[in-house]
Each structure stands twice: as C-alpha cells, then as structure tokens.
C-alpha cells in the first residue's frame, strides 16, 4: 500500500505494548478519504488500541501514524477539530443530562449543527432531559453517537458504535452512515457485527492479535472465501473429490454438497455440467465465514 495523498488514515507497522501485553504488533491500516472502512476483529484484537493511537491518546512504540495529513500525537488538538469519536464503552458524567453532554461535546469540538442535533434526537428516540446516571448502556451509546453525528467532522472514528442498540436503532444508524458517505466524509467503523460491515463498508481490514491479516474491498475478500454448493445431477456425481479448491465433499448418489474456493467456481461448474445438472443451489460467501476461517481452528489466513 503506497502513500496516496488522499489517505485520511495511514498506519504503518505500528507497535504498542502495555507491559508484557502486545496490543499492536505491526499494524497496517489505510483508509482513503471519503470511504467507509470496516475495521473487523474479535475482542482484544487491538481495534480500540489502534483507535486510541489515532486519537493521540496513546503513543505508539514504533511505526508511522498519519491522520488527516498530521501526526495524531503531536497535533492532537488541531486534528480533533476535524474528527468525531464514539468510544466503544461510553461512560458519561452521572449528574449531567444527555442533552447537555451532546451540546458540550459539540462545543468542545468547535460547534455542532443545532437542527441536525434535534433531528437526530428524534430519530434515535432519546430523551435528552435525563441525567446520564439513569441511561441504559444503549442510551449512553446514543448520546455519544448523536454528539458525533451532529458534527461536521471530516472523519468519524466509531468504535463498535452499535453495541447496545436495538435492531431498529441500528437501522437508523446505518441510514446516518449512508448520509455521511453521500456527503463524502470518511468513516472508520470498528465492529464485530458482520452484517453491519457488509451493509455499510466500501473496504474492510481484518485485524487479529494486533496485526492486519486481510484488507480489501468486500469483492476482493470474497475471493478468499468459499461458496457452498448443493447439486443434483442426472448421472451419479464423480470426480469432485480431489479436485483443487473443493472441500468437504459429501456425495450421495445423484446428490452432492461441497464448498468450493470462490476463485475455482468456474472450473467446478464446467466439471458438473456434463453430468446433467437438475438443480443447483449456491450459498454466497459471507464475511461471517471469512471471519470464521480467520479465527476458526484452521486459523491461518488464505
């Protein structure tokens, strides 16, 4: 990944340890301007640490970090005028109301759109008059989300922003992200909810044990995935077993079920066609499955 002038975020070979724990172990991450970038990884993989490095809250032990063309450690406060952040675990000041927190964060960031704020309050169905100590986890999350979404920030850093939201609110959130994308703003969305990432993201980076294991568009990543095929043929199925790229074959006379590397799909279909295909169902590769393969027991990437 070369240095492109439009990169909003550029992390190269960043290391960060806390005592003996290695949180980031040579992380690479590039987010182009104007894209919604999914940042995927299981709990404890280093997503939050990476975002805190981007915010200049943590100083990397080694490696390069560029954010909106600046150094997040050195230029933290000037860069922060141009970004909005939603932490993964939102804690608020117990005695201050949600409405006050939203306004305060907007002002600290350098001003927020009053109309958009009120509109978001309505869409997320949040009572701004309640003191933060009485909010549930989901409502605290909404407060932080509304504060971030009401801003004009060029870049939004969202750390698992929908944890604690119900499906209805998740839909509202997705709508908001689409609007932001349409405005040409950049979003880094850390998540372990694959459906959300699939619905929103242009590109995805997968992080594991503090290191990027995969990065690319959803289409590119699908090449690393397997399509599940169930087929019924007029002649008995032969020759599938042992074919390159075909896995987990179960043959019962005229029926066969197997997984095939998506890149090999064409070859396998050609092999099946002469057998007289009566029916064929294929399940598209999901990020879910990709995810499982990266973190499943067979572990090793690609």
């Amino acid at each position: 990944m070369g240095t492109s002038p439009q990169a909003a975020i550029e992390i190269t070979a960043v290391h960060k340890s806390f005592g003996v724990t290695k949180a980031l172990d040579g992380l690479d991450l590039t987010v182009a301007e104007g894209e919604v970038h999914g940042f995927l990884g299981p709990n404890g993989s280093g997503k939050t640490t990476a975002i805190r490095v981007l915010l200049g809250l943590l100083r990397p032990d080694a490696g390069q970090v560029r954010l909106l063309g600046g150094d997040p450690w050195r230029d933290a406060d000037t860069l922060h005028r141009r970004l909005a952040y939603v932490p993964g675990d939102v804690t608020l000041w117990p005695g201050i109301t949600g409405g006050e927190v939203i306004d305060l964060l907007g002002r600290l960031r350098g001003g927020a759109d009053r109309r958009r704020r009120d509109d978001l309050l309505e869409r997320f169905d949040l009572d701004p008059r309640k003191k933060a100590r009485t909010y549930s986890k989901g409502n605290r999350q909404k407060v932080a989300l509304i504060a971030a979404l009401a801003s004009d920030a060029e870049l939004l850093l969202l750390d698992e922003p929908t944890s604690g939201l119900d499906p209805l609110m998740e839909a509202v959130f997705q709508q908001c992200v689409h609007e932001i994308k349409d405005q040409g703003r950049t979003v880094l969305l850390s998540s372990h909810i694959l459906a959300e990432v699939e619905a929103l993201c242009d590109r995805v980076s997968i992080i594991r044990l503090g290191r990027t294991v995969e990065t690319g568009t959803l289409g590119e990543l699908r090449h690393l995935t397997r399509t599940s095929i169930a087929v019924e043929t007029s002649r008995p199925v032969t020759g599938l077993t042992g074919m390159a790229g075909v896995h987990d074959v179960v043959i019962a006379d005229h029926h066969a079920r197997f997984d095939v590397d998506t890149a090999r799909l064409d070859t396998v279909i050609r092999e099946l066609a002469p057998l007289g295909v009566r029916s064929l169902t294929s399940s598209p590769p999901t990020l879910e499955e990709l995810f499982l393969r990266h973190y499943g027991e067979d572990g090793a990437a690609s």
Partner: peptide, 26 residues
C-alpha cells in the same frame, strides 16, 4: 423519583473549565 434535567446545555457549559466546575461544584 429523580427529577429530569435540562434538554439543552446552558450557554455557560461550553468548555473544559465550565465542565470541571460543574462536576466539582457540589
């Protein structure tokens, strides 16, 4: 029951100083 508070921040609550005083005034 706990009372409801302000829906909007007052003009005073606009920076780190005001926040710190608000949090510690009690």
């Amino acid at each position: 029951a706990t009372r409801l508070g302000r829906a909007q921040a007052s003009a005073v609550l606009r920076g780190p100083y005001a926040l710190a005083w608000r949090l510690q005034r009690g």
